[in-house]
Every structure is written in structure tokens, then in C-alpha cells.
């Protein structure tokens, strides 16, 4: 740790770059007057998160982050906006009241304190060094799916098939 950039210069530069983008996008999420834009900024934050996971060598979590959050949850958000609000575009009504802002700020502050304590208040994290070369986690996950968790994997596919058929049957009109 000779320089400010630490051992792994490229990785750290990438971290700060992505972190800056994430913070900027996160601020836009709460300040944007357009709900759709806010949702898209949220996508930027979540993709940035996936990028951080890749920097940590956790590709599987990164892929899950993309699939679940960007792929499913944000799409749900957008569907929700589409189905509930006719007006897609800038909307002055979207501004929050003072009470809402105070509550939001309070919750965010508490979150900051808790996370700050977890990182700096306890001994563990600052001393922990990540191992140099990470094992291929995706390979490990796939190995365990086809060995240890073979039956649960297959059982889930039966479960999902039943859920799929059920959803179609119930949603279809006569």
C-alpha cells in the first residue's frame, strides 16, 4: 500500500469511477422530476453495483444482480409506472413534501450510520484482505447445481412449470 491507489491501481481507479457514476445516478433517482427517468437512473445504479461485484471477482453475484434487479425488478417498476400513470414525462406533482423528505433523509442517515459502523467501527473489515486470485465462482455454482443440488434444481423446474401453467390458465380470458 505505497500509493493512495493501493496494490491494485487499475481496480481501484475503476472502483472510484464506477462509484462516482453510481452516486451521481443515485442522486438523480431521488431528484429527477420524471418517474421514468428516475427508474432508468436506478438501472444505472444497479448496473454500477454489478460492475463493483465484478471488480471483487464475484461474477455470479454480478450476473444475478443484472438478471434479478435490472432484468426483473426495474422492468416491474416500469410496468407499474406504465399501468398506473397515463402521463409519462416530466411531472411537477412528483415533488415530495417536506415531511416525506425529512423521513427519507432520516432513514438514509440511519442507513449511513449503520453501514459506516459496519465498515469502520468494527475491526474485521479494514484488516481483511481479499485473496489474490479468486476461484471461478460461476464454475463452482454450476458444479454444485449438477452435483449437490441436482434434485432441488430439478424439483424447482417442476415447481416453475406448475407455476407457469397456472399463471397462464388463470390469466387467460374465456
Amino acid at each position: 500500500m505505497d500509493t493512495v491507489w493501493g496494490d491494485n491501481v487499475a481496480q481501484n481507479i475503476a472502483f472510484y469511477l464506477i462509484a462516482a457514476i453510481m452516486v451521481g445516478a443515485a442522486i438523480k433517482v431521488v431528484t429527477s422530476k420524471n418517474v421514468v427517468h428516475a427508474a432508468l437512473y436506478l438501472v444505472a445504479v444497479l448496473i454500477g453495483m454489478a460492475g463493483q461485484f465484478i471488480l471483487l471477482g464475484a461474477e455470479f453475484i454480478a450476473a444475478t444482480q443484472l438478471l434479478v434487479y435490472v432484468g426483473a425488478i426495474v422492468v416491474l417498476f416500469l410496468f407499474g409506472i406504465m399501468l398506473t400513470r397515463a402521463q409519462v414525462g416530466s411531472d411537477p406533482d412528483v415533488d415530495t413534501t417536506a415531511a416525506q423528505r425529512t423521513t427519507g433523509g432520516f432513514v438514509a442517515f440511519i442507513l449511513l450510520v449503520v453501514m459506516g459502523y459496519a465498515i469502520y467501527g468494527t475491526e474485521g473489515l479494514s484488516e481483511t484482505k481479499l485473496p489474490e486470485e479468486r476461484v471461478q465462482t460461476i464454475a463452482e455454482v454450476s458444479d454444485s447445481i449438477f452435483s449437490t443440488y441436482l434434485v432441488p434444481f430439478e424439483a424447482i423446474s417442476v415447481l416453475l412449470l406448475a407455476a407457469l401453467i397456472g399463471a397462464i390458465v388463470l390469466a387467460r380470458r374465456d
Binding site: A155, A162, A163
Partner: peptide
């Protein structure tokens, strides 16, 4: 649903039993 029930009845692992239970139940809800 029946195959979920069979998975549940022959599970030797709690996770497998849970998945069997869910497969059994979800089909029956519908």
C-alpha cells in the same frame, strides 16, 4: 402436483421437501 407430492413424501432433505411441498401446493392453488 402429484409429482411434487411424491418428491415431498420421499425427500431426505428439508430443502427438497420444501420444493416438493411448493410444487404440490402451487398446482393445487390453481
Amino acid at each position: 402436483s402429484a409429482s411434487g407430492g411424491v418428491i415431498m413424501a420421499s425427500a431426505n432433505d428439508l430443502i427438497v421437501m420444501f420444493l416438493g411441498l411448493e410444487a404440490l401446493s402451487i398446482a393445487i392453488y390453481v
